[in-house]
């Protein structure tokens, strides 16, 4: 007989008296809300809900890829979203969160988990989590693209330079997404963590300095993960609302 049931039989499921379930419930709920929102906004509604307003483009669609052969019912976001989706799904922080909240593996520390057997990330499908490195390379490419989108938001065709609430939102969003990527565990490893000797040359000393800085950012990876997730959702919502005439953007331009 497995000892899991042994522990339960002997001592009970858990003796924790604090509200340990709040955290997984909250974070799980948050993730779920985002997944539903982004699916609806970017994939289901797609082209039928405007995602461009003046100089603003929703970050779900950045950069806009819309070749003619693609039917109208397919959202251009599909060419973009696989990348952040893959990156975040395989992210060490999100893994922790959804393993706990959705797979209840474990539901909380020192709380008995329901599954009968367990092989962690050693077998398919979870062995695919090792693709995180690949998604990181892609995510790094997206950083300049997102900054490009943010800078573009300060330039209205025909009128030139200006600033609006939307340009600020997209800038903050680009910054948070960049920080999320820079605080990635995998990047921290690539920059310096993979070295055994930091002092061996001036090159490795420099990498150590970079590693120190990324380590600082990495300590708050969870924070960057949530901040950027919320910001990208809000940025998308904002652009949509402006594009569909629900909101008017406050800005310095005369004709938008």
């Amino acid at each position: 007989m497995a000892q899991a049931t042994d522990i339960q039989r002997r001592y009970g499921k858990t003796q924790r008296v604090d509200r340990w379930w709040i955290e997984p419930a909250l974070f799980g709920g948050g993730l779920l809300a985002f997944v539903i929102y982004s699916t609806v906004s970017a994939l289901i509604l797609g082209n039928s809900w405007h995602f461009e307003a003046g100089p603003y483009l929703s970050p779900f669609f950045e950069p806009l890829i819309k070749p003619g052969w693609v039917p109208e019912w397919i959202s251009p976001a599909v060419f973009i979203l696989w990348a952040p989706l893959g990156f975040r799904t395989t992210c060490y922080y999100y893994r922790r969160t959804y393993y706990r909240s959705f797979f209840m593996s474990p539901p909380g520390c020192a709380v008995t988990e329901p599954a009968k057997s367990y092989s962690g990330e050693s077998k398919f499908p979870f062995v695919l989590q090792n693709a995180h490195r690949l998604f990181l390379y892609v995510a790094l490419v997206f950083i300049p693209i997102l900054w490009y989108g943010a800078l573009k938001a300060f330039w209205l065709d025909g009128e030139g330079l200006g600033v609006g609430v939307g340009s600020l939102i997209l800038t903050v969003n680009a910054f948070l997404l960049m920080m999320y990527t820079l605080s990635c565990h995998s990047l921290r490893h690539l920059i310096g963590g993979g070295l055994d000797c930091f002092s061996c040359s001036s090159y490795t000393r420099t990498r150590r300095k970079a590693w120190d800085i990324l380590s600082l950012a990495n300590e708050h990876h969870k924070g960057w993960a949530w901040a950027s997730l919320i910001s990208v959702g809000l940025a998308d919502l904002y652009v949509h609302l402006v594009a569909n005439g629900v909101l008017t953007d406050l800005n310095t331009w005369s004709n938008f």
């Binding site: 922790r96 020192a110 962690g120």
Partner: peptide, 9 residues
């Protein structure tokens, strides 16, 4: 190591 699912307990 790959049994660990980094749930951080």
């Amino acid at each position: 190591l790959d049994y660990c699912n980094i749930t951080k307990c």
